[in-house]
Structures are given as structure tokens and as C-alpha cells.
Amino acid sequence: MASSASIRPSLGAAFTRLTSSNTTSRRIPLLLLLPIQQTAPLSTTSSLLKRHTYPGARSNKDMSKNRGQSALRRTGLRWRLSMSDEPLPKPKRREELPPIEVDPDHGLWDFFPNRETVAAAPEDDMKHGRAWMVEELRGKSWEDLHKLWWVCVKERNRIATAAWERERGKMGFGKSEAQGRDREVRITMRGIKHVLTERFYAWEDAVKLAENDPEVNLSGKGKAFTPKEYLEEEEGVAVEEVGLKDFRGPVGGEAAEVPSEGKAQGEAARL
């Protein structure tokens, strides 16, 4: 105890000396403007310096996040900030931006019946003929029918786009005219499916017949069709030929095309 008492004044003197040496810096006016650094040579928070490493020790972290920060003492912030005081650029207004040029060949134009008004006027919607009839479609090839199908699909999309525009924009009447147009397109599409289904059935029947026909080779190797001599003595073969001729009559020149179309139709029907 005595030793501690004797030490105390000397420590006090040491403290005063240390602090007085620091006071000189405070006299400089320029330094006053700058954030003041910590001046005490020894930590005044000695309890925080204690290390508690044993298991179950209390946490030693500084619970005061703002320790040492003071507006009066101009300490500045404790942490480095990730921003600067540079002026940020301002975004331009929508109206000030240059107008966007639309490609005249943009694919989306195909959705519009009319590029200016978007929705077709009822008068224009009425300008249509009748649908394609099944009789007319029977003579068309698969390529033609496929193209016509896509024309119909796009026309229906156009009618639907116009209907949305007319109803959303509250433009007026024209629903029944558009529906009439749509009906004709759908009848055409139905006709296409009808014709393709007919061809598929014809192809199925032809395959059945060919299985029993000695002239047709269905194995896929060699010649598919080897016609026999025109004049045949044997009776049995002659009868078979006559049967085949009878069948071929109504099918006509399409026989060669039938298989490929039938396959395509089969796939389409599955989808």
C-alpha cells in the first residue's frame, strides 16, 4: 500500500508533463480546423484492453459504435465511407430523348391490320370473300396447304389484335364484322384439316393394299414398284391387278405424294 502511495505523485507528475507537451499543438489555429487525433498516450479505457481468453469469457468488443466521435471536437467519422461528394449525373427526361426509329420491316407490324389505326375499320373488315371450300383444297399440294394455313393463323392473330385494341381503346363498334371475318378464316382452316385427314385415310388404305400386292415392295430395299408384264396369262394375278386399278381410280395422280403428306398430317394431328 505504501509503495502505491509513494508512486502516485510521481505518476501524477508524469501525466501532467505528458499532457502539457500536447497542449502546444492546440495553440496552432490551423490544426483546429482538422479532425483532432487522439492525444492521450495511454488508453483511458483500460478495462477494455483486458484480454479474456478463457472459455465462457464475456465478449470484449466495444459496445458503443460511436465511441470517440464528436461534432464539438470535430473528430470526423470513425469509419471510412464508400461515397464521395462528387455531383451525380441526372437522367434525361423521356421527352428530351431522341425519338426511336422503328424498323419498317419489323416483324411485329404483321400483327396489325392497319399500320396507322391498328384496328381495322368495320368497313374494311367486311371486305372479304367466302372461305376456301374442301373441293378447291383437294387439288392443292401439302406445301400450298401449309402456306395457306399460316396465312390463316396470321390473319386470326391480326383480327385478335384489332379486337383487343378496339375494346381496350373503347373505339366503338365492329365486333360482329370481325367475328364474321374470323369465321371465314376458321372454315378455311377446317377445310385444310379435312383434306389432310382424307389423304391420311387414303394413304392408310393404300398401305394395306400394298401389303398383299406382289408388285409393291414395302421392305424399303430395292425398287418400291415393279410392274409386271402387261399381258399376263395367269388368272389370279389379272384379278388382283383389276382390283388395284379400281382402287386407284379416284385417288388419281396424288398417289405418289400421299405417303409424305400422310406422315406430316399424322404428326400434326398428334400435336
Binding site: 400483327f111 401449309h146 393463323v153 389484335t161 383487343w164 385494341e165 381496350r168 406430316a264 400434326a268 400435336l271
Partner: peptide
């Protein structure tokens, strides 16, 4: 890769919102 020969869908393009 799946080929669709005769699709029967109706797709309509709608007017965008003002902004």
C-alpha cells in the same frame, strides 16, 4: 426441336402502357 406443322393458337399483340 419439336416440329409443329399446323398450330392452332391465337396470339394477340397488345398496346403497351404509356411509360
Amino acid at each position: 426441336e419439336k416440329q409443329l406443322f399446323l398450330p392452332n393458337h391465337v396470339v394477340a399483340l397488345l398496346r403497351p402502357k404509356p411509360k
